[in-house]
Nucleic acid binder design. Structure first.
Lengths: 359, 359
DNA sequence: CATTTTTGTTGGATCGATTCAAATTTCAGT
DNA sequence: ACTGAAATTTGAATCGATCCAACAAAAATG
């Protein structure tokens, strides 16, 4: 008899408990979700029955459907899932998001995908109340996909002209100017820029055309900031090589090779990310060049790793954790409005920059 | 008229589309989930209606309830959520889990909680098909809580006697012996152990009583391994100080203070985690002691940071990524059986260990 | 004792989809 | 034109809970 029931292996539902305890659905539900409104005697009886039947407690699946809210926010990127645990920038950002979620008891669902179809499916089927989008490469596609879900979402890095999407980013122009001025004031006159992409899947030296047609306005703004400030020091910015990388090892090294193959190698490098800056330091050291003796470098982002490497990296620090916190809160207490926030940045002078060599 | 409808702001459901397009629920559903079985003409009509009405696509909440499967695995810990992004061990483990999830298209939900009640609630209400448990502190409570969900789960670090829970861990005894032998063969005779906790919330020197009554068998096994091997070299293990820490900065430093305040300070430290070992290196350097000149250290875990610090850490490496992968797969293709896997470990000799000082 | 309040319980409606057996339509073959 | 098989479509049942208006019983009030 018992074996017959066990053979079923059907999980026990709230309705089963109600029937067995001789109460209604409603009362059984109350025993678990609002026990205080149920008479003690009944409550105990139902609980006992539940215990004895091996009831696992109200299944969140059912509750969820009824409630409409999942109480979790999705964090999505086009990179593989491990990106969240590998990339220093992402990690600090996630710490901020975690903090806000911890505070309100919300969960975090990581969404990503190796390929395009899976990305679409994962976005479509993620059980979340909203999304935070890491817009790195292929960001525009990610935004389009997410928009179709008609859930609140925030894009990190407001690299989109599209004013209809909520976004949090930093003042790229101001940050870039800070970096450029710092180097110019140290006497540098020959520059090179390690740039992020201006559009999807680009790499190599960027022409003015490319810059003008930039899809990623974040990249464009940083370059504009560099150039504006350098121009104020009377530097001819049209001569400055700008190399687009994929913000990873290989293309960054290729960029450095190309830049230092030129006739007049730079004495200062403006890198649009700490990642590239760190790779550059490594590359220069391996080439026997001294940082900052021969070449100075300024990064962008302010990831913790920058403080630990040798020499420690001078950089433009974003308030990464705070951005994460705000992004999470934007989703958590979403009020239907589009928000676009721009955060300030800060120049942190460490050991990777120094006075330009005389001569 | 339109304004009246819009005022409702009720999200459009599949049923609305079906009605508007003049087809049944079933057909409308098929248009989205199995488009190939619907006649092209009908399919296009329904899609057009959906598009025009601004339908966001089938809501995963409904689908989920019906399907029963969430297609996501929960990773839980008693630490705050940011633990997953801060702790190097956790990060490598997550990379492994991510890999397995990416491969099958499953999602990852991070579960954690600042306080006990929230932990319970978060575990109870997490929308997942199973759990991977990071059993650090308070692991037993986490296991109890999870068991109540009656979902498949795996404990990482099989630190539980309880043979009824699935777990993946390493051969702690063998690993510890490897570490101890390495130091003994280098001529060391005076040791100290930086230990993980033997039970919840413990810290300070551990007495044999404490060790015998260990709740965490993982810790007990490592210590047993150290002692067994050292005994083979004729070392009196009863004299070896064993200090339990919370595996973080403060208590580890306190442990080092206490250990080096003793009459005959050790020339070799056996640390049960790389984290503690790294902190120890730092502490020793600040104290003017040379590693490995004055004191040798062996860690346990094999986190990437260990390779980067100075001096690079000699350690017992666990196949962390592989453990993560397996744990995820155990949940993903769960067959109802209890699995307990023990993985091998490896001694990685780097620069933090050297011959014992003469005299 | 009749009447109002308070407290506890009930059962049906609902959340938003998927599924499947049965009904219907389409179509090839004669 | 007719038949049987194949291709589509239908509509009710289901997933597992919560909510709420209505009702019943008990307690408080006049």
């Amino acid at each position: 008899m018992a074996s017959l029931l066990e053979g079923q292996a059907r999980p026990i539902r709230l309705a089963d408990i109600a029937k067995a305890a001789g109460v209604s659905h409603g009362t059984a539900s109350n025993v678990f979700s609002r026990p205080e409104i149920v008479r003690a005697e009944v409550r105990e009886r139902v609980k006992a029955v539940a215990e004895q039947m091996g009831y696992a407690g109200p299944d969140p699946k059912g509750r969820l459907l009824r409630a409409g809210k999942v109480n979790a926010i999705g964090v999505a990127t086009t990179e593989p899932l491990s990106y969240f645990f590998d990339d220093p920038f992402a990690r600090v950002m996630m710490a901020g998001i975690s903090e806000a979620c911890d505070a309100t008891g919300a969960g975090i669902a990581l969404v990503s995908a190796a390929n395009q179809e899976k990305l679409a499916w994962n976005i479509q089927s993620a059980l979340v109340d909203g999304f935070i989008l890491f817009c790195i490469e292929g960001g525009s596609r990610l935004v389009d996909l997410t928009r179709e879900r008609r859930l609140p979402f925030v894009a990190l890095e407001l690299g989109f002209q599209d004013e209809t999407v909520s976004a949090i980013g930093v003042d790229n122009v101001a940050g870039a100017r800070l970096a450029a001025r710092h180097l110019a004031e140290l006497g540098h006159r020959r520059f090179a820029v390690l740039s992020l992409a201006f559009a999807d899947n680009r790499t190599g030296f960027a022409t003015p055309d490319v810059v003008r047609g930039a899809l990623y306005t974040g990249t464009r703004d940083r370059l504009a900031g560099y150039f504006e400030e350098l121009a104020r020091f009377g530097i001819d910015t049209t001569k400055i090589p700008v190399y687009e990388t994929e913000n990873e090892e290989k293309s960054t090294r290729a960029g450095l090779e190309a830049i230092f193959a030129k006739d007049e190698p730079p004495t200062a490098i403006l890198a649009m990310s700490d990642r590239m800056a760190l790779i550059a330091i490594d590359w220069l050291k391996a080439r026997g060049l001294n940082v900052p003796g021969d070449v100075s470098i300024v990064g962008f982002d302010g990831v913790p790793d920058g403080a630990l490497c040798t020499p420690a990296l001078t950089t433009i620090a974003q308030p990464i954790t705070e951005i994460g916190r705000r992004a999470a809160r934007m989703i958590l207490d979403h009020d239907g409005t589009v928000r676009r926030e721009t955060m300030g940045v800060e120049l942190i002078v460490r050991a990777s920059t120094g006075p330009a060599r005389k001569g």
